[in-house]
Design a protein around this nucleic acid. Structure first.
Lengths: 353, 353
DNA sequence: CAAATTTTTCAAAGCGCTTTGAAAATAGAT
DNA sequence: ATCTATTTTCAAAGCGCTTTGAAAAATTTG
């Protein structure tokens, strides 16, 4: 069923039907009702492709996720974020076009999406430090919103981001105030922008409290459970081990917890762990007392906001770039406690080993 | 830059350019080269929307993910699967349109995607037992491939699925042959088709070996870490506790492991755990000896295959439905061992508690 | 009741592409 | 050189919609 057929069927011109359905005022309420009913009954909906062609708007947003080298790492954060964005799109008649591409193809993808007129705008996921994609996108002339920021960049662009630096500073301070001084940082890959900001926040806390920092307590890699486990397994048996960990994701914290248990220490008593938690619904724990003390921020909500921002930018191209910095909330769970200085070495000594 | 402009620029008709770029034989190699070069230089690519309108094919595949009630659970499996599918789409000039919808809106989504002509086919994610979506889709007349199956259904439809039953039967047998008899099942939500098949496989193994089954050792819920933890925490302190667990996902197994540690037992020695592992790259552990004994199956690959299948169906609508059953491989890790009958109760007794 | 307004509806053009059917150019045969 | 067969190119129609500018109908006014 297309416009022409419907038009013939109900004896009204295509123009009138289009206007009635589009909510234009140049049509009486009586005919609008009539048209809406007929459209409903005949299951008529405008062909999106024809509509796009006629209006020049694709009515679609591109989400480009890139992976680098080795494995096709599709971070669960992305799907959570898209789920949030998706709600906004659905409410505004937009479609979400997902592209998963190798990092080195990414700039080609952008210019293709532009020249093929497949999308009206783009969400950039997972920006790296000094990421060149922003320049590319600006050259290409496609509206975009970045989930995250790019530190080095001089460009004016729209973004939405968690206040990673502030968040990790606060988390680290929290531990320092509990008496911890040997605090490990199990960070994400620090070529990623978010991770470098987190490290900066962590270091700031040390500086402010005059606590000496120790490079050997900092790790940086992709955020997997095994990475958390291995890092902690390396650090805990040291002669002067960390008494606390600041961790960049929930899944990594789980690995750290495994290591803590494995060496016979108790989480939240012998060793404290504070983690960033993106509140992925998939991992959500609804415990009364959350397992981990965490800095929380809803990725789902960030997705929704990012989408709203992008649609606004598309509709008002003359506006200056928009930005939104999301604060995290620090929720105290069972994984942190005062520094008792109960290290593995001390324990062993006590046990007379 | 559009066809008309390019046509004017290089002095060839739109027809010729379209044919040259489309790889049709009615154009000499010389002009084809010339056209390709010009298209390249002018960064010309056909407008997808116009192309779709002209050809009647959307050149897009819809992935519809539904969530039910409570939280917007976007399973990481979906993104991994889409990542695989995405590769196929990219190679064939298709776009991936992602829709995340509330369960009850889903049938409306299908008929919309159809009547709006946004997609040429659909991938159905996460089918439930007796899922009504298949009938809806068949009524709507949109080609589709299901990731998973629907047990109750009489319909002929295309699907790709892991052999869940066989897989869980094998896993359970593996444990039985190690001497375990009290084997807990920490399954997914059994309204989901995959979970009900897994339970069937688990029960089959018991039946075949004449081992009595115990309903109180079976759990069914959404696959979260906390669910695994709580289930194991309930089961392990029982007077006659399980000595082994069959678990439906890696993340749940992590929760089970936490509980095992917490009650002071050793994984792989006191208690065995075997889990299904969807080989999500995000969780991948590259240990020499994997942490968990697991039945493995690559979701990424399943995504690729599903997409290939769907494109084939779209191109050859006359073909009968296709199906593909993926076998899992059982890889032995450090989480399983012979039944030593070392239960928590026994340990406590030994410790004189 | 006719003229002037306002409201409602419409025919036709155009969005950028593919594709049909025809024409022009080239090659091959006589 | 002429005629036929083949290759190469093209003009024009059509895909299903929106939107402009005009016409028809309904309403208000003198």
């Amino acid at each position: 069923m297309n416009l022409k057929q419907l038009s013939k069927k109900i004896g009204l011109s295509q123009t009138t039907i289009s206007r009635a359905l589009g909510g234009y005022p140049e049509v009486s309420e009586a005919t609008r009702k009539k048209v809406q009913l007929a459209a409903e009954q005949n299951n008529y909906r405008p062909n999106t492709r024809a509509k796009s062609l006629a209006t020049g708007r694709a009515m679609a947003i591109g989400h480009v996720i890139s992976f680098n080298s080795k494995k096709e790492v599709v971070n669960p954060i992305f799907s959570e974020f898209m789920s949030g964005a998706s709600e906004t799109y659905a409410n505004n008649g937009y479609e979400l076009i997902l592209t998963i591409a190798h990092e080195e193809d990414e700039s080609k993808i952008y210019s293709e999406l532009k020249s093929k007129r497949s999308v009206d705008g783009i969400i950039v996921h997972g920006p790296r430090k000094g990421d060149s994609r922003l320049e590319q996108l600006q050259d290409v002339g496609l509206p975009f919103v970045v989930h995250g920021r790019v530190s080095g960049s001089e460009l004016e662009y729209s973004w939405i981001d968690v206040d990673n630096q502030q968040s990790f500073k606060r988390a680290t301070k929290f531990l320092i105030e509990l008496g911890h001084e040997r605090i490990a940082l199990i960070n994400g890959d620090e070529t990623m922008d978010f991770a470098s900001r987190r490290r900066a926040g962590y270091l700031h806390a040390f500086a402010e409290h005059g606590v000496p920092e120790d490079l050997s307590l900092m790790r940086s890699a992709d955020l997997t459970e095994v990475y958390g486990y291995r890092s902690a397994m390396e650090l805990l048996p040291l002669p002067n081990p960390p008494t606390a960990f600041v961790v960049s994701s929930y899944i990594v914290a789980i690995g750290v917890r495994r290591a803590i248990h494995e060496v016979g220490l108790k989480l939240g008593e012998d060793v404290s762990v504070i983690t960033h938690d993106d509140e992925l619904s998939y991992f959500s724990d609804n415990d009364d007392i959350p397992q981990f003390t965490a800095t929380r921020s809803s990725v789902w909500l960030a997705g929704r906001r990012a989408a709203e921002m992008l649609l606004d930018i598309i509709q008002n191209p003359e506006k200056p770039p928009q930005t939104k910095l999301l604060k995290t909330k620090l929720t105290v769970g069972a994984s942190t406690g005062p520094n008792r200085n109960v290290t593995l070495a001390a324990k062993r000594r006590a046990a007379g080993e």
